[in-house]
Every structure is written in structure tokens, then in C-alpha cells.
Design a protein around this nucleic acid. Structure first.
Length: 873
RNA sequence: GGGGAUAUAGCUCAGCUGGUUAGAGCGCACGCUUCACAUGCGUGAGGUCAUGGGUUCGAGUCCCCUUAUCCCCACCA
């Protein structure tokens, strides 16, 4: 960079080159048993179907920030990257691609289909991984994994077998959520409920003995084809005499009993509920309690099957229409009401999900949930922010069995075989060739695959080599931080915790750092259908990856959503430019042999800067430890821009011009503070800090592995910091006064300073000249106020001889105003200090701070009064 | 039905375990071709910290009520 010295930072010329430098240099690689303490993050694997979106950008920025920080702190920092096969989403894409060629997966056959799928994965699976590099993600790519690679697949088979052996996986005919479009079962959490405007149909079912009717109400009349009972509440007096009697199901003419079950709410509807065990989860339960037959009336594509008699073949909506029409015609329909109700939809395709009875595999959750609750209760694993543990507990405590089988082909095929001869079920780690029960060789493997989250649940340890007891696993597991969005706590985090605890005996991570969703400027969720998504790659192209990262990391408080506002990115880009130019300034003044160091002799402003810097080091580190990344970033920004650039660099200019020892020392201090600041900024903005750091005469080849600064008590120059603040305050006050009077900055003026801190102001004199337009600075005990504009600070009275601008009346009015303000301040502090309980109960430091404030305000007031008294006229 | 979040300057948001004269960026006004940066510099205007109570020597910060917006869970057919 030194040669070019462009005025503006151009990220496009830097980022790819720096990334390659790091990757080729092997700086992202972690080595087990290096003698350092391990620090591990396992990346939430993005779907191979996906493209990088803002959510990924946020998630990975936070992870990279933590990894880079810990790496610099001297940990053996490992960030494991990888991708997820995303069973349903990927299958949908492949099927779609096949359709375009006029093919179907059935026509192709499973084997050929899977070949196509793998080819597809090969072609697109690397895309998002490349995009992650653009962000600056410093993952150990040599350890990149895929949920369907050999190792992860082995882990899946192992876990399935273990759980089966323990009786925690079972196969059964249950009611599940069926998506007719995706053509598979989905788990309870994959169903999203949407409120829809529907109807409430009141239908009368005739009693078999001809003594009348029982009226029921339903939102889904088509399911009556599968009714096997009508239920009433056992204590409902209206219906007590009917319990045990038989009804004739209209249209179908099936005889069904009237049963009593407390599930029925007598207040709701008619107080009588049609029971369809095959098509409603609650009815299914009722059916079990009363041993009712289960009559499935639907096909996989949600058309009515042969059990639906004349309605067979109709889709669910046509069937509903027809049935309602027939009921009306035959006089069974009593009335129709409007009724808003929630309809379950598929979280992938949004089609209406059908509760449907079928044979599926399930994980028994209760025994797994208990220890998983325990590790969060006892603090082994913590949520940041804490409030998410409540959500976690609530879900875990009310968990139902997990349906894990999916009727699709892309994924981990279930390691279960069925004997064609005796029907024996064999779950095994590898394909068996004989049936252990009957000896038959005719075995057929289960056609289903596992829920994609089944393999994701094992991700923190399967990626480290489990079930083998690898070096990586021993050293890096359990991992430290899991960084993910709150939307995925149930799908993933909870399942990783119970899987980790069950399989490895350890919770997979100590902290779950939860972030929110990235929304658009109006606060709407970014989505394809709204077309309001902002492509992070576009942002990187326009503003640079560092600007994007800084934007995402600042103003983000844990767990809260954040709005993506382009103005913020622009501000971050400007900050990059500020860093660039600060370094450029130093390089322009650099002389042979300069290096970062703390000279033995320090000027007051050097100490002022170093003291600020030293405090920053401590605070930023503390903020990061508490996951307050946004606060840390804000502090770095303020320090760099305000303290370092606006003040120190400006102050240093006089010294640079003078040259000599003083200039040398200024350069050393500047280099020292820049070196440290760039280290602190590196996790937030890795590219520019690396680029610029390498151009500085700092020791070492690359910033990425430099040590993280630690506070140095020798740099706490409390007195000098306070003293120099008097000069800063004076400069500000003079500038303000001049601006108020409309004096052009180019118009220099003499400053006569009356102060009790003569030596401090003597040291500050050159700065008053440079930064407060002083032509000459004189420090003395008293000055003739005549013809002078006055500026009063806590520490000084400053006389600016500008007779032509002096309006005595205005001057007096202004001084009176300042006097009143000072008096008010003093009064309020005195009131506090006179309050005995304040002095007694407040911490000593707080009381002392109040006294200090009072002292300063009093000094100022005295000066104002003096000025007023001296005012001529 | 249950739980949670948010409400601070025109806009977007900080404000950690209670003690600041309540902050930042953008925007706005005024002034600057100051030899790192106009993606800049200086100065300034702008806030009853949603309402009402309470705890406390002291509350934007803790507790309760109310209002508004948003989210999650449950899913009475």
C-alpha cells in the first residue's frame, strides 16, 4: 500500500488478495494438542441449495469475530465449516430440474436419481462456501464437512443404531403431518400455522334407532368420511342419555358410536365432536382411548382414496365441496357459519399439511429431554442472552416424540431392513444378508430417509470425527460457542444438546450466542416474495466486506433483530477510509528505523493518548467477554476517530513539522497506538486492518496472529490525562466562541490565558495555536479585560483581544447566563452533598466525583464573577 | 389461552451490574479548498427517555399497571 498512497481505501483491490494470503499461509488451520488452550466454534452449516443472504452474513460475521479474537488471545482457535444436505429443500430443487427435462424421480429410479443429486451437489454445493470467503470467514477449510459425507453418515448410522438398541427409536403407525406437495411426513415444528378464514359447518347425524339427530360442527367436512365415532363430554347433561347409542354416518351409512370423552369442550360448538382418528391428532388420541377403528380416507397426494366411496379420486377441496352439497341436498346440513381458524402449512412449500396416519420412525423424546434440560439448568450450557433458556425449557419440557422418517430419497437412508418372508425388522450398522429370525436372504431396506435435522443434531461432534475417538474430538470437543439465530433454537440447538449429551456424555457447547433476524429498513423480514432482500455480496462489492461486517456487528444487541440500513454501511465504509488515511498520515511522515514503542520521555498529549488507549484495551476485552460486540465496536470507533484522529493526529502535526526528537517520539507513540488499535479492530474489520498493518513497520509478517493487547498499568496516566483535558476543553471553548462570533478560522488572534495551571497551558500553547487559531499565547496572572472577548472554562479565563467584535451588553448577558448555569449546577450538587443519606449510602467514589464536580463548577463560577466585576461600564 | 421482545433526538439505534449536564451515525443549520481523509474538519440546533404508580439518598436503567407494535408457543373440533 505504501507505494500507492491513494486518498481512498479501495476494498476491491485488497480483499481477495489478503484472503488468499491468509488461506495459503495456513493461518486458519488449527492443530490439536498444540500446547495452547482450544477454542472451538462449529459453523451452522448453510444449505447446499442456498446462496449467501444477510442472515448468513450476520451469523458468520459474529463467528469470525469471536474466532479471530480468541486466536489473537492465544487460543488454538478452530472454526469448523461445512454444509447441510437440506433434504427436502434440495430434493425439491432436483425434482424441479428433472421436470424441466421432462423427467421424474420415479421414472429415473432411486440410484440414477441419487447420481443426479450428487452431481448437483458437486456443482452448487461449493457456491455458498466461496461466498463465505468473501466475508472474510477464517474457517479451517481443511476440515470442511458435509452432512452426507462418509464420516457424518457413519455418525448418523451409529446414532440411529444406538438409539434403537436403547429403545429410543421406534417405528409405529401414528398420526403425523403430511405435506402432499413435498410428498413426505414432516415433524411438528416444521408445521407453520396460518390463520385463515374458513367455515363452520353444522351437520346432523341421525340416531340409528330413529329417535332423532345429534348435531356436530366441523371445519373440515370432508374428513367425515373417516369418522368412527362422535364424542360428547361425560358430564354434559344434554347428551348423557345418548352415550353408548349408535349413529348412522350420513353419506357413508356407517354405524358409529356416541362416546364420552373429557377432551370435548361442552361450551364450544354444539358440544358434540365428530371423531376422525386418521385425520386429526386429537381424534387420534381419542380413538386410542376408545379403541376406535382408524379409517384413512386420503391418498398421499391428498385425494380421497377408496375408503371414501363415491368421493374417491377427488382432491380434498373438491371433496369438501361435493360433500357439503350432498349433505345439503339430503337435509343433513343445518347451517354454515364463518369461522377463522389456524391451518397448518408446510414450512418449506406452504401447502396445507394433512394430519395423516402412517407408519413412521420416531425418536422417543422424554428420556433424551431430561438430561438436556439439566445441562442448561446447571449452567454447563448457557444461552446469551439468558432469556432464551426459558423458551428452551418450555419446549423441552413439553416435547413430543420426533418423527424422523421422510419419504424422500435425498438424505441418509434409514438403516433398517425388513425380512420379506417373516417381516422381521433389522436395524444394523451395515446391510445384513440374512434374517436373524428366519434365515431368509430376502431383505428389503427401508426406503425412507431421515429428517435433515437428524444429522445436523450430531454436527458438533460428527464433524470432529465421532464416533471415532479422534485427536480432534478429544481436544476440541466440547466446543465453546454456538452462534445462531433464535429461529432455529428448536430445530437445531435443542437437538444438538440432547444428542451431544446422549452420545458423548457432554453438552456440545458451553455458550449459545443467539442473534436476531436481519430485517429491511422498514423492519420487514427479508424475503424472496417481498423482493426486499439485500444481497450481501452486492454490499461487499460496493462498500467492502469490512464495512458490511462492521455494520452487522455494531448496533446489534444480542438476541434482537436488526434493521439493515444502507446509511450505516456508508458510515462503516467511511470509517474504513478513516483508518486508511490515519495510516497514510503516519506513512507519509515515517522515517527510516521508526517502530512502535513507548519512548522514555513522553509529552503530556502522548500520555493523554496512551491513557485513553490503555483504558480502551481493557474495556473492549471486557465487552467481548460479555458478548457485547456492538458496544466494543462503538468504543473502538469513538477512540479511533475522535481521540486518535481528531485530536492526537492533529496535535502531532506541529511536532512532525518541527522534526527532531519530539517528532520521533510522536511517531513512535502513533505507531504504538495504531499497532494496538489495529489489533483490536482486526476481528471486526479483518481486511483493511491486515492490509494497513502490514504496511506499517510493525514486527511480524501478518496481523491475524498477533497477540491481543492487554492493559498495561504503566500507561494509566491519570493526572496527565486530566490535565490535558483542560487544554482540550479550552480549545473547544475557544472554537465555539469564535464560531458564535463568526470569526473565520483563518483569522488568527492572540490568546491571553489567566490560569492556576500555568505549566499545563504552557505545554498546550502550541496546540492552542494550531487548533484554536491563536497567533500568540501568553499565560499570566491577570490581563486587562478591556477590549477582549472572554472565554471561561473550569481551569482558565481566556482573553481574546478582538475589540471590534466586542459588544459589552451581549458580553454581559452571556456571562450572566453562564453564571446562572454554573449556579444551578452548583446548587444541585450541593443539595446532593448536603443530603446525609446520600453521603452515607452512596459509594465513596460517587461522592468524591460529586465533590470534584463541585470544585470545578465553583472554580468556573469564580472566574465568571470576576469577569463580570471587571466588565467596564 | 400462555410466554417473550420492543417503545430514548426528524430517521436508525447505543446506554453493561441504578449515580453522565442522556450518547452515536445519518439528516438538518452555520462556517471551513487547515499540507491523512470533503467517504473530510469545526461549531450548533434538536430528547417531559410511551403513560401512570412504586422501590431507593438517587431510576432512561429495578418492580407493578396501562397503551402500542412485533415475535414465539399452544391449537377447541
Amino acid at each position: 500500500m505504501a507505494k500507492e498512497l491513494q486518498k481512498q481505501y479501495n476494498p476491491a483491490q485488497v480483499e481477495d488478495r489478503i484472503y488468499e494470503f491468509w488461506e495459503k499461509g495456513g493461518y486458519f488451520k488449527a492443530t490439536p494438542n498444540s500446547g495452547k488452550k482450544p477454542y472451538t466454534i462449529v459453523m451452522p452449516p448453510p444449505n447446499i441449495t442456498g446462496q449467501l443472504h444477510m442472515g448468513h452474513a450476520l451469523d458468520n460475521t459474529l463467528q469470525d469475530l469471536l474466532i479471530r479474537w480468541r486466536r489473537m488471545q492465544g487460543y488454538e482457535a478452530l472454526w469448523v465449516p461445512g454444509t447441510d444436505h437440506a433434504s427436502i429443500a434440495t430434493e425439491a430443487k432436483i425434482v424441479e430440474a428433472l421436470q424441466k427435462e421432462g423427467l421424474s424421480k420415479e421414472a429415473l429410479g432411486r440410484e440414477k436419481y441419487l447420481e443426479r443429486a450428487w452431481a448437483w451437489k458437486k456443482q452448487y454445493g461449493g457456491r455458498i462456501v466461496q461466498q463465505l470467503r468473501k466475508l472474510g470467514s477464517s474457517c479451517d477449510w481443511s476440515r470442511e464437512r458435509f452432512t452426507m459425507d462418509e464420516g457424518c453418515s457413519k455418525a448418523v448410522v451409529e446414532v440411529f443404531n444406538r438409539l434403537y438398541e436403547k429403545g429410543l427409536i421406534y417405528r409405529g403407525e401414528r398420526i403425523i403431518n403430511w405435506c402432499p406437495t413435498c410428498h413426505t411426513s414432516i415433524s411438528d415444528i416444521e408445521v407453520e400455522y396460518q390463520e385463515q378464514q374458513g367455515h363452520f359447518w353444522h351437520i346432523k347425524y341421525p340416531l340409528k334407532d330413529g329417535s332423532g339427530y345429534l348435531q356436530i360442527a366441523t371445519t373440515r367436512p370432508e374428513t367425515m368420511l373417516g369418522d368412527t365415532a362422535v364424542a360428547v363430554h361425560p358430564e354434559d347433561e344434554r347428551y348423557a342419555h345418548l352415550i353408548g347409542k349408535t349413529l348412522i354416518l350420513p353419506l357413508v351409512n356407517r354405524e358409529i358410536p356416541i362416546i364420552a370423552d373429557s377432551y370435548v369442550d361442552p361450551q364450544f360448538g354444539t358440544g358434540a365432536v365428530k371423531i376422525t382418528p386418521a385425520h386429526d391428532p386429537n381424534d387420534f388420541e381419542v380413538g386410542l382411548r376408545h379403541s376406535l377403528p382408524v379409517i384413512n380416507v386420503m391418498n398421499e397426494d391428498a385425494t380421497i382414496n377408496e375408503n371414501g366411496g363415491k368421493y374417491a379420486g377427488l382432491n380434498r377441496y373438491e371433496a369438501r365441496k361435493q360433500i357439503v352439497a350432498d349433505l345439503q341436498e339430503q337435509g343433513y346440513l343445518v347451517k354454515v357459519e364463518d369461522h377463522a381458524h389456524n391451518v397448518g402449512t408446510c414450512y418449506r412449500c406452504s401447502d396445507t399439511v394433512e394430519p395423516w396416519v402412517s407408519k413412521q420412525w420416531f425418536v422417543k423424546m422424554k428420556p433424551l429431554a431430561e438430561p438436556a434440560i439439566e445441562v442448561v439448568k446447571n449452567g454447563t450450557t448457557k444461552f446469551v442472552p439468558e432469556r432464551f433458556d426459558k423458551i428452551y425449557f418450555h419446549w423441552m419440557e413439553n416435547i413430543r416424540d420426533w418423527c424422523i422418517s421422510r419419504q424422500i430419497w435425498w438424505g441418509h437412508q434409514i438403516p433398517a431392513w425388513y425380512c420379506d418372508d417373516c417381516g422381521e425388522v433389522i436395524v444394523a450398522r451395515s446391510a445384513p444378508d440374512t434374517c436373524p429370525k428366519c434365515g431368509s436372504h430376502k431383505l428389503t431396506r427401508d426406503q425412507d430417509t431421515l429428517d435433515t435435522w437428524f444429522s445436523s443434531a450430531l454436527w458438533p461432534f460428527s464433524t470432529l470425527g465421532w464416533p471415532e475417538n479422534t485427536e480432534d474430538l478429544q481436544y476440541f470437543y466440547p466446543t465453546n460457542d454456538m452462534v445462531t439465530g433464535y429461529d432455529i433454537i428448536f430445530f437445531w440447538v435443542a437437538r444438538m444438546i440432547f444428542s451431544g449429551v446422549e452420545q458423548t456424555g457432554k453438552s456440545p457447547f458451553s455458550t449459545v450466542f443467539i442473534h436476531g433476524l436481519v430485517r429491511d429498513a422498514q423492519g420487514r423480514k427479508m424475503s424472496k416474495s417481498l423482493g426486499n432482500g439485500i444481497d450481501p455480496l452486492d454490499v461487499i462489492k460496493e462498500y467492502g466486506a469490512d464495512a458490511l461486517r462492521f455494520t452487522l456487528a455494531t448496533g446489534v444487541s444480542p438476541g434482537n433483530d436488526l434493521r439493515f440500513v444502507e446509511d450505516k454501511v456508508r458510515a462503516a465504509r467511511n470509517f474504513c477510509n478513516k483508518i486508511w488515511n490515519a495510516v497514510r498520515y503516519v506513512l507519509m511522515n515515517l522515517e527510516e528505523g521508526d517502530a512502535p514503542s513507548i519512548p522514555d520521555t513522553l509529552a503530556i498529549e502522548d500520555k493523554w493518548l496512551l491513557s485513553h488507549y490503555n483504558r480502551l484495551v481493557g474495556e473492549v476485552t471486557e465487552n467481548l467477554e460479555k458478548y457485547e460486540l456492538g458496544i466494543a465496536a462503538q468504543k473502538l470507533y469513538d477512540f479511533f476517530w475522535d481521540i486518535l484522529c481528531d485530536w492526537y493526529i492533529e496535535l502531532s502535526k506541529s511536532r512532525m513539522q518541527e522534526g527532531g526528537e519530539s517528532a520521533l517520539r510522536a511517531r513512535q507513540v502513533l505507531l504504538y497506538v495504531l499497532d494496538g488499535s489495529l489489533r483490536l479492530l482486526h476481528p471486526f474489520m479483518p481486511f483493511i486492518t491486515e492490509e494497513v498493518w502490514q504496511a506499517l513497520p510493525c514486527e511480524g509478517e501478518t496481523l491475524i496472529i498477533q497477540s491481543w493487547p492487554t492493559p498495561n498499568p504503566a500507561l494509566d496516566f491519570v493526572k496527565e490525562e486530566r490535565d490535558f483535558n483542560m487544554v482540550v476543553e479550552a480549545i473547544r471553548a475557544i472554537r465555539a466562541r469564535r464560531a458564535e462570533l463568526g470569526v473565520a478560522p483563518s483569522k488568527k488572534a492572540r490568546l491571553n490565558i489567566q490560569t492556576d495551571y500555568a505549566s499545563v497551558f504552557a505545554q498546550g500553547a502550541p496546540f492552542l495555536q494550531r487548533l484554536a487559531s491563536a497567533s500568540y499565547v501568553e499565560i499570566g496572572n491577570s490581563f486587562d479585560p478591556a477590549g477582549s472577548v472572554q472565554v471561561i472554562t473550569d481551569a482558565a479565563r481566556i482573553f481574546i483581544p478582538m475589540a471590534e467584535l466586542l459588544d459589552l451588553d451581549k458580553e454581559r448577558a452571556r456571562l450572566e447566563k453562564e453564571k446562572a448555569a454554573a449556579q444551578n449546577e452548583i446548587a444541585s450538587i450541593e443539595k446532593k452533598l448536603q443530603n446525609q443519606s446520600f453521603v452515607a449510602k452512596a459509594p465513596a467514589a460517587v461522592v468524591e466525583a460529586e465533590r470534584e464536580k463541585l470544585r470545578k463548577a465553583s472554580e468556573r463560577l469564580a472566574k465568571i464573577e470576576e469577569s463580570l466585576a471587571e466588565l467596564p461600564g
